[in-house]
Design a binder for these strands. Structure first.
Length: 448
RNA sequence: GGAGAGGUCGCCUAGUGGACUAUGGCGCCGCACUGGAAAUGCGGUUCGGGGCAACCCGUCGAGGGUUCGAAUCCCUCCCUCUCCGCCA
């Protein structure tokens, strides 16, 4: 249950194309259709047999009530007939259970097709929708203003990558994180720790006070049903840390617990839209990324993130995606970080999204764009998996909601970009104005 | 973790092997009455699968079992409540 059997039957070509565009196997579509046809056939037969058995059993009861002896020949004959139906049914039910499992498994592996206007292809097909702010160079004039670029002549200094700045200021301790847990588990210290806390608080405050979100503080362990609901299983199962003893997973993102809040629910008309915002630490194994971005905090196993989760009526989900993306952009603008918005191509967008924007912030120390937010519309795909429905009108028929989510924002890379953008020639870091009151500091300096 | 009590349709609730085709109430929807409403009356109201349809099948926390037949009996698990233990 993901794409929906009805749509699968009605427009198999579109689903097949969607799978090809996302570099998944289109043959799954035909396999699922064939299995479903067989399933319906078997179910028809099984239903018929059950109906027979029901009437047969009922007639036994009535015969006994009518005065026949429960152990007499008349009842025995009826009983024999019912037993025989039961035997046939048992065989059929076993077959049916197998085929049902097959259908479900196939459906779980068919990806959500992208919206028609999403570019087809891989990384090269991503489209830059807009950029904001000045893309600073590494070389800066010594007497220039913060954020000013080197423009010919004069003395210059060179920006450092965030790991050098952070190490010198003793605000991030990577070696000790590696000691107590493993590589990719940063320790934030002193003003570094306070900066984490400040960003989390500020993000949550903006979203709750200005953007109308309801704050959620969810569990960071999730069960299998939740992981399946949002699509981490089976698509991203090997990216999650597993607590095998209790059959739980560490959250890879707040999306999972928060979207699953309404799993198996039918929402009444007035309840939509639902806008949640949640902070959680996020845990990712980054399997397959070994040796990539090993320095600094660009790719870590544990990071902090404030996530927006939206449940919307289908007809407004696209515009809700634009709005939500704007909320994330607003944070970057107020932090004074240069960024660009990318419309991700089919090959880059993942299994469950129908449309996805990535926000990439410019980090002038490493001279790279860093993904700090991913804003996606899932259409009804996740909702179908989770059975989240709503009634458009009181007493009306239940329909699937649309789900969306977006980071607002992910911390580690935002912190890297802040450090690299606001570092000063003397090695200190200016604190972005909006964070001043939260941090109680205007500048992070080496402790003497 | 131990002992006990429970989990039935949005909510409350009846139901201890065949008349359950799951009861009744609240809420909700429709109709009638009304200037409009309240109150009242009548009808409808779990969710899902199949079928053009009449209708059929499943669904009483989940999964197994016993039986011709399970909401009802048995087993395992999950959750809630009470008490005990442990504990930030």
């Amino acid at each position: 249950m993901s794409v929906g059997l009805q749509r699968l039957r009605e427009e198999p070509d579109a689903i097949r194309k969607g799978a090809i565009d996302k570099r998944e196997d289109p043959a799954l579509v035909d396999a699922a259709l064939a299995a479903d046809a067989r399933r319906r056939e078997l179910q028809g037969e099984a239903d018929g047999l059950r109906a027979e058995r029901n009437t047969a059993s009922k007639s036994i009861g009535e015969t006994i009530k009518g005065g026949a002896k429960p152990d007499g020949p008349e009842v025995a004959a009826l009983r024999a007939r019912s037993t025989e139906i039961g035997a046939r049914l048992a065989a059929l039910e076993a077959e049916l259970a197998t085929i049902e499992a097959q259908v479900e498994d196939l459906l779980l592996r068919i990806p959500n097709p992208a919206e028609p206007d999403v570019p087809v292809g891989g990384e090269e097909a991503n489209v830059t929708i807009r950029t904001w702010g000045e893309q600073l160079g590494r070389v800066q004039p010594v007497d220039g203003e913060v954020g000013a670029d080197a423009r010919g002549g004069g003395e210059t200094w060179e920006r450092k990558p965030h790991w050098d700045v952070a190490e010198a200021l003793d605000i991030i301790d990577l070696p000790r994180g590696a000691k107590i847990t493993g590589s990719g588990f940063p320790v934030y210290k002193g003003a570094g720790a306070a900066l984490q806390r400040a960003l989390i608080s500020w993000f949550l405050d903006v979203h709750t006070r200005e953007n109308g979100f309801t704050e959620i503080w969810p569990p960071v362990l999730i069960n299998q049903a939740s992981a399946r609901g949002t699509g981490q299983i089976p698509d991203k199962e090997d990216q999650m840390y597993v607590v095998t003893r209790d059959d739980l997973y560490l959250v890879p993102t707040a999306e999972v617990p928060v979207t699953n809040l309404h799993r198996d629910e039918i929402l009444e008309p007035a309840t939509l839209p639902i806008h949640y915002v949640a902070y959680t630490p996020c845990f990712r194994r980054e399997a397959g990324a070994a040796g990539k971005d090993t320095r600094g905090i660009l790719r870590v196993h544990q990071f902090d993130k404030v996530e927006m989760v939206l449940l919307e009526r289908p007809e407004v989900s696209q515009q809700a995606l634009e709005w939500m993306t704007g909320r994330a952009e607003d944070l970057l603008q107020r932090l004074g970080l240069a960024y660009r918005v990318l419309l991700m191509s089919t090959g880059e967008m993942g299994f469950v999204q129908s449309r996805k924007y990535d926000l990439e912030v410019w980090a002038p120390g490493v001279e790279r764009w860093l993904e700090v937010s991913s804003c996606s519309n899932f259409g009804d795909y996740q909702a179908r998996r989770m059975a989240i429905r709503y009634r458009a009108e009181k007493g009306g028929k239940a329909e699937l909601v649309h789900t969306l989510n977006g980071s607002g924002l992910a911390l580690a890379r935002t912190v890297a970009a802040i450090i690299e953008t606001y570092q000063q020639p003397d090695g200190s870091i200016l604190v972005p104005e909006v964070l001043g009151p939260y941090l109680g500091l205007e500048r992070i300096e080496a402790r003497t």
